[in-house]
Design a protein around this nucleic acid. Structure first.
Lengths: 183, 183
DNA sequence: TAGAGATTTCACAAGTTTTTGAAACTTCTG
DNA sequence: CAGAAGTTTCAAAAACTTGTGAAATCTCTA
């Protein structure tokens, strides 16, 4: 094969590798694999694609495409374009990756932590309140341990909400971990 | 009911609420719910329990208990005690929560990111190398986008490994999010 | 070293999540 | 407004995950 000619098929094979890697990461973080694959493909192509093209390219059913795209849109990770005078819709990837991440953190992880925290605090309180004198010292001990769990949760919540609030969590200092970029 | 007498049943009901909350969090983070329930129960009780007691208390089968405890031990989240002259084993919770978290971060999240990063970098490289002159500028564009993904991954990796390396990620500055504690 | 007590393994059952595709629906055009 | 093109819905199939419990294995003690 000629050295300098990555046939279309070779190129799309490579793009799929990336899409699958992102799919894997997202699945690991509790999303559907297919969400990651769709977003990546849109992101890498850099131009809007129709649902039909995505079905074709990723070998998924129309139903899956429709449902997943709606979900991605709801997460603000993909935008739906309805060109006037064209009954076909197109989709493009949100490219501000931090915006995506922070939205997810806010809506998913924070709620989850909040929920656990409520339980921790309420139970701790009830244990201490209702302790009979003879049980007091043992129950205080348990309460202390619950308190530690709650502290960890609060710490996580604090980190996440600080990150989210700052909009970009001051990416610059973190960027020292990034690969030096030419441009 | 008398105000100051939390019967055993009431207490264990409360502890189960906490155990379930932790179970929920852990499930959310990609572990089995039962792992969180077992760890929490051990943690809250503060004393070693036998597998049989856990089966009883959490209403799970011996098989599930055995497998899950092995897994928890492997994660360094639970310790197995084999009192000499007693053929029954006991289990106790690791109580250094940060140690647990950092171990998980290191073994799970870091590996996952590393894996994706390899794909990103390799594909980017191959795309650029094999570009024919006519394709060059378009492919450079794609490569640039892959580069951004890789940067994000590197940033995540940097954050996690810095946290893990410092052993305690300098918990103090983060602790301002924690609930003020009396003691 | 026999065997009682304890733990592990594993094939299978139960439960859950994901995907499919055909039918219903919506929207544009002639 | 009929019908073609496109999208959504949803019930059921497939794939995957988790829990069960009886049999196999291990390990103390007498």
């Amino acid at each position: 094969m000629a050295a300098g000619a990555p046939q279309a098929s070779r190129e799309s094979e490579l793009l799929h590798e990336v899409a699958d890697a992102v799919g894997g990461l997202m699945e690991f973080w509790g999303f559907k694999r297919i969400m990651g694959r769709i977003w990546s493909l849109l992101y890498l192509r850099g131009e809007p694609l129709s649902a039909a093209e995505l079905c074709q390219e990723l070998a998924i059913s129309t139903g899956a495409a429709s449902m997943t795209l709606t979900e991605l849109e709801h997460w603000g990770v993909v935008r739906r374009l309805r060109p006037p005078g064209n009954r076909r819709e197109y989709f493009e990837a949100e490219t501000d990756i931090w915006r995506m991440v922070s939205r997810v953190l806010r809506e998913r992880e924070l709620t989850q932590i909040e929920r656990a925290l409520e339980v921790f605090d309420r139970v701790r309180d009830q244990l201490v309140r209702s302790a009979s004198p003879s049980e007091k010292s043992r129950l205080d001990d348990v309460a202390e341990r619950i308190g530690r769990l709650a502290d960890l949760a609060r710490m996580g919540r604090g980190l996440l909400s600080a990150a989210v609030a700052q909009g970009k969590i001051d990416l610059s200092p973190l960027m020292r971990f990034a690969r030096p970029r030419k441009a």
